[in-house]
Each structure stands twice: as C-alpha cells, then as structure tokens.
Amino acid sequence: MVKRRHASGKSTRACAALVCAMLAATLSAVPASAAAPTSHVVTIENMQFNPPSLTVKRGDRIVWINKDLFPHTVTGNTHAFDSRSIAANASWSYAPAKAGSYPYGCTFHPTMHGALTVQ
C-alpha cells in the first residue's frame, strides 16, 4: 500500500495533481500494456464525492481533489484507508493493494458517502 500526501493547500498543487492524473489516465489508455495501472480522479465538491462510486483494479491510483472551501477526509468505513484532513484545494492519493468493497465517507461531514470497489 502506497500513500502520498499533499499537505499544503495550494490550488496550483491540486491543479498539478489533476493534470498529472489526467496525463497518467491518457497514457495508460494506450493499449500497449494491459497491466499498466490507471489513475482515477474523484472530485470532492459541494459536499459530495464525484463520482460517488468508483471501480478500480488493484494497484490503480485514485486521486481525491478537494474543491470545497473547507477540509474533508476520505476515510474507509472499516478504516482500511484514511486520508486525515485534506485542506481546501489540496488532494490525496491512494493505491489500494487489496480487492474488496470499501464504502467510505468524510469523518467531518457524516452526510458525505462514497464507494470504492477494488477488483
């Protein structure tokens, strides 16, 4: 399990993460290597995870970008993963190593829910 944390809340950094993620997604779309890991982006905005549910393969990387004005977390209901506080305009990425279904939420805002399925 590899975790990377973007601690500071610079919007340029979030944008850079988005560009990188999009680049990676584009590159991995090239059919040369079927096993190449893909990057996925989940936007946190308007108190919602978008897309709310996402299916990935083991080893894929998911980047959550917080576009709200306040901090959020990405926390597995069983605590399989926990971003801790992601500042406004910051991001957090995670590459799940184990298959399974992982409902998750924001510990700060109990109304926020998402679902991650790892194949």
């Binding site: 308007n46 108190m47 709200d68 306040f70 805002h109 109990p110 109304t111 926020m112």
Partner: peptide, 16 residues
C-alpha cells in the same frame, strides 16, 4: 451558490 451545499449538510447533521 458554492457554500449552499454546506448549509444543507450542516442542517442534516444538526437534525441527526
């Protein structure tokens, strides 16, 4: 418009 969803979430949280 951007802050409105937070007020909705706060209301739900408060009611809970």
């Amino acid at each position: 418009v951007k802050v409105r969803p937070a007020f909705v979430a706060h209301l739900e949280h408060a009611k809970h």
